[in-house]
């Protein structure tokens, strides 16, 4: 564990807590893409298959349970909570996310570290996480007003994988085995997808104006 990875995990934890806070306290999921939440639940379900077979550390297991629990409960809130689901804008959240899942699964079947079920599922989760934010970014561009909590959620979610890149660089120079190239290429692609969001997020923060993405 290094400071970059810890910072990344804490940023990731903060992003899910911000989203849970928004949905649980103000009972609203306005501006939140259910499609992205469903993709993230699938990412964690396919990445943490080893949660029962490979014990790494208490921290690792607890964080996996938090990410699994929070992502599935957020999907439940938006789909089934009698108040929250009314604020879900399904007419705007129209990204066909199965068009993301299928290519990721095909790619994982061809490009992976070794051809086992767990490994292909883990690789699929890396590819899927790289593109999981797309429905959310598309929704943000459609809904003109982005409330602070949603903006902060997306910012933290993008920042966490950016911090992981520093973690992979650090591990490359300090450990005998380095993190597999599939992991960090997917992580770099994922972070690059947030590039324009980061730009507009910092612009709005610097000029102290409401965050608005260009149409």
């Amino acid at each position: 564990m290094n400071i970059f990875r810890l910072a990344g995990d804490m940023t990731h934890l903060a992003s899910v807590l911000v989203l849970l806070l928004k949905i649980h306290t103000i009972k609203s999921c306005a501006g939140v893409s259910l499609k992205t939440q469903e993709l993230y639940a699938l990412v964690f379900a396919t990445r943490y298959l080893d949660i029962v077979t490979d014990f790494i550390s208490v921290y690792n297991t607890v964080m996996k349970l938090i990410f699994l629990g929070s992502s599935f409960s957020i999907v439940w809130y938006i789909r089934h909570h009698r108040v929250v689901r009314r604020s879900y804008d399904k007419d705007q959240d129209t990204f066909r996310h199965y068009l993301l899942m299928i290519p990721c699964m095909l790619l994982a079947l061809f490009v992976h570290e070794k051809f086992t079920f767990k490994e292909v599922m883990w690789t699929f989760s890396l590819y899927l996480e790289a593109v999981a934010i797309l429905p959310q970014l598309v929704l943000l561009q459609r809904t003109r007003n982005i409330d602070n909590l949603t903006g902060q959620y997306v910012f933290l979610l993008g920042a966490y994988r950016g911090l992981y890149i520093f973690n992979w660089i650090y591990r490359y120079f300090t450990e005998p085995h380095f993190v597999h190239w599939i992991t960090w290429i997917a992580g770099v692609v994922q972070t690059l997808l947030y590039a324009d969001f980061f730009y507009y997020y910092f612009e709005s923060w610097k000029n102290n104006v409401r965050l608005q993405l260009p149409a």
């Binding site: 690792n60 964080m63 990410f67 570290e113």
Partner: peptide, 10 residues
């Protein structure tokens, strides 16, 4: 057991 690289991460 030496974890294969990256699997000890979240």
């Amino acid at each position: 057991m030496e974890h294969s690289s990256g699997k000890d991460e979240l």
